[in-house]
Design a protein around this nucleic acid. Structure first.
Length: 472
RNA sequence: CGCGGGGAAGUGUACCGGUUGCAUGUGAGCCCCAUAAGCUCAAGGUAGUGGGUUCGAUCCCCACCCCCGCAACCA
């Protein structure tokens, strides 16, 4: 089915100026499902799952100051919140990467030096309209009647800054060529077309250093500049494989997952940097969609923010993971709503798999069946495997729930409660095999459920357990 | 201005050039092992509007209307 020997999957590293929110959780849960899937197929030691935090930049420094903390202390605190959230969500990352890791600094500097030595970085000036209120250069859309939309009373200044520029314009055609030759790919197809279109529309060089920002990695040949945070951040994917010899083999990455808003960085700029440094390109760059909540963009002012930690408290990690991944097709945009979460929780989890487990366990307990007799299947079902290998976790889950529905139908048709003796045992063991199938297949998505099913039906005497998912 | 996504049963959503599928919700019946759970059947969509291509379009093309997002130094 696949000739992979190893699998390296990443999430973006999240910017620490805000707490983990639903968007971060969505990306990370998906990445976790892929990581867990491939671990089962290839063995734990052949999968590397990376996530982490992006901790440099002016905004972080400002946020730290506002919180009355030194930057490092501040980022330590926020990074800890991410670690905590991922623990709650049962995220099985192998490394939690932080860009303030001193080992990362060296990798970034070496890589930049290489690109510099290759003649692909030059000194120039960045010129723009600067808003002191925002502390950044404004894009034309942010300027209305000569004033910043957020700070209409602040005087804007035309400002120039000396920056180092990366010759993206020179690299872009080569990157496009690599994309078209299939040296790396961008999915879904619609996103790829978008990226190709942008690449063809004329690319400008980008500045990759800042003079005024001290909270960052110094440019190796000119310590008065720090590395632009995006460059610093992207390099993490490579950097994480360079800290230990045992991890070297994971580069290049097999799958970078991110939301579509940062695809540009991952589908062009990252490849350009790698090419410039003479490094191999990642295999797949996968952008998933955005979601709205009850039809609107999630925002604090609208008050429709869904907090992942609260969701875990209410539904449990497994359920929340399920609800996120089945809400809409992975890659598309979609809509989430608390009302629908509840509906789906009751229908698919409580009435579906939860009830089915009780149903079969009860019959088995009465029949005094031994679970140790059967054994769990070890491989994924073909349709689950093909869904996962074409990056469609939602389809994989749908296939699994088809097993659940089928089993409910079989039980109804065969009326095992009327059977006795060998007939009953035969029927029950077929049901248990099916549940074993569910357990194996659902593992990447709902690890606790998978273990619970295994514990009930595949070890010792079968006892009817407490409900796995209580109706809400 | 530009780019992209979307408008389909009460709600949400999938695939697809050839009597729309699924889920949820609703109604009726069945079963009674199970978490008032399960099974079956039924009702419910002229697929935003108007054109075009085609033997045939929800699907391809054009225009328009509406919603949403992105718009590159923002991480």
């Amino acid at each position: 089915m696949s000739d992979r020997k190893q699998f390296y999957v990443t999430t973006p590293i999240y910017y620490v100026n805000e707490r983990p929110h639903l968007g971060h959780a969505y990306t990370t849960v998906a990445a976790d499902a892929f990581a867990r899937y491939w671990r089962k197929v290839l063995g734990d030691e052949n999968v590397f799952f990376l996530t982490g935090t992006d901790e440099h930049g002016a905004k972080v420094a400002a946020a730290a100051e506002k919180a009355g903390r030194a930057p490092q202390q501040f980022t330590d605190e926020v990074a800890a919140q991410y670690v905590e959230t991922w623990q709650l969500l049962n995220i099985s990352y192998d490394t939690f990467f932080r860009t303030t890791d001193p080992r990362h600094r060296k990798v970034v500097q070496d890589l930049l030096q290489k690109i510099y030595d290759a003649g692909l970085i030059y000194k120039g000036t960045y010129k723009g309209t600067y808003c002191i209120g925002c502390e950044k250069y404004l894009s034309p859309e942010e300027i209305v009647d000569g004033h910043c939309v957020l700070h209409p009373t602040t005087q804007l200044v035309e400002q120039e800054e000396e920056n180092y520029f990366f010759k993206l314009s020179e690299l872009a055609p080569r990157v496009l060529d690599a994309l078209e030759r299939g040296e790396y790919r961008v999915i879904p197809e619609g996103r790829r077309a978008e990226i190709v279109g942008k690449m063809q529309s004329g690319i400008e060089d980008i500045s990759i250093s800042r003079q005024g920002v001290t909270w960052g990695i110094p440019v190796p040949w000119d310590e008065s500049h720090t590395t632009y945070v995006w460059v610093d951040a992207l390099i993490n994917y490579y950097s994480a494989t360079q800290f230990e010899d045992s991890l070297n083999r994971f580069w290049p990455a097999d799958l970078h997952i991110m939301a579509k808003d940062i695809l540009w960085f991952h589908a062009l700029i990252w490849e350009a940097l790698l090419m410039a440094a003479g490094l191999p390109l990642p295999e797949t760059v996968l952008a998933h969609g955005f979601f709205t909540v009850d039809g609107q963009k999630m925002s604090k002012s609208i008050g429709n923010v869904i907090d992942p930690v609260q969701m875990v408290e209410e539904y449990g990690a497994d359920s929340f993971r399920y609800l996120l991944l089945t809400a809409f097709a992975f890659g598309n945009d979609g809509d989430l709503s608390l009302a629908r979460f509840r509906e789906k929780y009751n229908a698919d989890l409580a009435n579906g798999i939860g009830n089915l487990v009780s149903r079969v366990a009860n019959l088995a307990e009465k029949a005094e069946l031994e679970g140790s007799a059967g054994s769990m299947p070890q491989a994924f079902s073909p349709d689950v495997a093909s869904a996962m290998e074409s990056f469609k976790p939602d389809e994989a889950l749908r296939a699994i729930w088809e097993i659940v529905a089928e089993l409910d139908r079989s039980i109804h048709d065969e009326e095992p409660w009327k059977l006795r003796g060998e007939e009953l045992r035969e029927a029950l063991s077929r049901y248990i095999v099916k549940l074993g199938e569910v357990a194996v297949n659902v593992g990447p998505f709902m690890p606790a459920l998978s273990q619970a099913i295994e514990a009930v039906f595949f070890s010792g005497p079968i006892r009817k357990p407490d409900p796995l998912f209580l109706r809400k």
